[in-house]
Computed example of a mutant assay.
Amino acid sequence: MDTKFAYYQMVRHILKATKETVHLGGFSHLLPPALRVDSGDTVDVETYSGFYVYDKAPPAFLTPEFVDICQNLAPERKVAGGPHLLTGPIYVKGAEPGDVLEVELHSISPRLPVGFNAIRSGWGALPQKFTQPALRFIDLDLDNNVAEFPKGSGIKIPITPFFGILGVATHDEHRSSIPPGYYGGNIDNRELQAGARIFLPVFVSGALFSIGDGHSAQGDGEVNVTAIETSMNGTIKLKVRKDLHLKAPIADTPTDIITMGFGNTLDEALQNAVSSMIDFLERFVGISAEDAYVLCSLAVNFRISQVVNSPQKGVHGMLLKSILPKNVL
């Protein structure tokens, strides 16, 4: 093995979240890269959440860097109308349209001992019943890895951190960070914890990957619009896969293959998730479409990812890797 090449492939970068390296509200291929990496490089990345609530936040939620972002983010880094602060974009050398970007999630951890949850008027699964906006800051017990909610109730929620948004740029100049889609984005899939990988189709040179929307805990559905929204640290590995060609994101965990479907209704999202799983089983496992359809009914669990990222709801299908005859990704 060429030792120089082996060393080259093991480069590790640090991408801190500052007003020069984050963007607000969406994705755009016009944004200059915050970092350039080679395929196979690892990045220690910082993210912040809560741009629009920082002025109501307790001291533990605030750092000087975050306040600087909230007060001094340049207009050109405010891409669209979404509420999310994203770190990036990261330019991955060699990534070209038609390729796939593999994002391996090595570690994910809250960077502050507090997160927030917000009910927004007109949003959520029950907007007619819960009409008034409400903002709650929720303490995180990072020593015991739990969050008590409501405070004093004795109800202890396990902290299971993940990034709600993992996405690449498309040819849209100003794409909101709210809806997910074929580019990834605001997937809000709680299965994508440390140890998982997500595979994203590439649409522009360099992929222009951005990450954020950290969640310390979330139930499937994310029904009141938000999780425990948390500023988050992570370590990720980015790899260009020229041997894969995908129309929509797929993922895997140590135990499952995950396909994703998005649509304006849950029915449509479910149909797309099933169709994606059938396509996966045809292409990567080598069985017929009809047999794949039957297998989906026998062995795939379809779950609601989220119902609140208007106009796209999300459903994901989970297939146990242990039932497959070989590793396929």
Score class of each variant (00 low, 15 high):
185 G>M: 12
271 Q>R: 14
177 S>G: 05
278 I>W: 02
254 P>Q: 10
159 I>K: 00
211 I>F: 15
265 T>E: 12
182 Y>S: 03
209 F>H: 14
249 P>S: 14
243 D>E: 11
288 S>E: 07
243 D>N: 11
249 P>D: 14
207 A>E: 11
163 F>H: 12
200 L>G: 13
155 I>W: 01
207 A>T: 01
232 M>E: 09
205 S>F: 10
264 N>Y: 05
222 E>I: 09
252 D>L: 08
270 L>W: 07
268 E>Q: 15
168 V>A: 00
198 I>R: 11
157 I>P: 03
161 P>C: 06
258 I>C: 05
270 L>P: 02
204 V>M: 12
195 G>V: 02
215 H>Q: 03
222 E>S: 08
261 G>D: 13
254 P>K: 02
281 L>Q: 03
163 F>D: 11
225 V>R: 00
252 D>K: 13
274 V>S: 08
263 G>A: 09
179 P>D: 10
164 G>R: 06
151 K>C: 04
230 T>G: 14
172 D>Q: 02
228 I>W: 06
175 R>L: 10
271 Q>S: 06
263 G>R: 13
173 E>T: 03
205 S>I: 01
245 H>G: 04
231 S>T: 05
257 I>A: 04
246 L>F: 08
260 M>G: 01
172 D>R: 13
284 F>W: 13
171 H>P: 00
194 A>S: 15
266 L>Q: 13
152 G>M: 13
272 N>F: 03
255 T>N: 12
176 S>M: 05
156 K>E: 12
249 P>C: 08
263 G>W: 07
288 S>H: 07
150 P>H: 10
288 S>L: 08
180 P>L: 09
180 P>V: 08
260 M>K: 01
184 G>A: 00
196 A>C: 04
231 S>Q: 10
150 P>R: 12
169 A>D: 02
211 I>P: 02
155 I>K: 06
207 A>P: 14
224 N>T: 06
228 I>D: 00
230 T>L: 08
255 T>W: 13
223 V>I: 06
168 V>D: 02
218 Q>W: 05
172 D>G: 09
161 P>T: 00
248 A>P: 02
160 T>R: 14
278 I>T: 07
234 G>Q: 13
245 H>L: 09
246 L>R: 15
276 S>F: 05
261 G>N: 14
277 M>G: 09
241 R>F: 06
219 G>V: 15
158 P>I: 13
193 Q>H: 14
173 E>L: 05
254 P>S: 08
173 E>V: 01
248 A>M: 01
250 I>D: 10
175 R>V: 05
284 F>C: 02
162 F>L: 11
242 K>T: 03
223 V>W: 15
271 Q>G: 06
242 K>P: 06
281 L>N: 03
251 A>M: 00
153 S>T: 11
175 R>D: 12
278 I>G: 02
272 N>S: 11
219 G>I: 03
246 L>A: 14
259 T>P: 03
241 R>T: 00
266 L>G: 11
235 T>Q: 14
210 S>I: 10
260 M>W: 09
170 T>D: 01
250 I>V: 12
204 V>F: 04
186 N>D: 03
254 P>C: 04
233 N>W: 15
287 I>Y: 13
218 Q>L: 10
238 L>P: 01
287 I>E: 10
260 M>N: 04
171 H>A: 06
231 S>C: 08
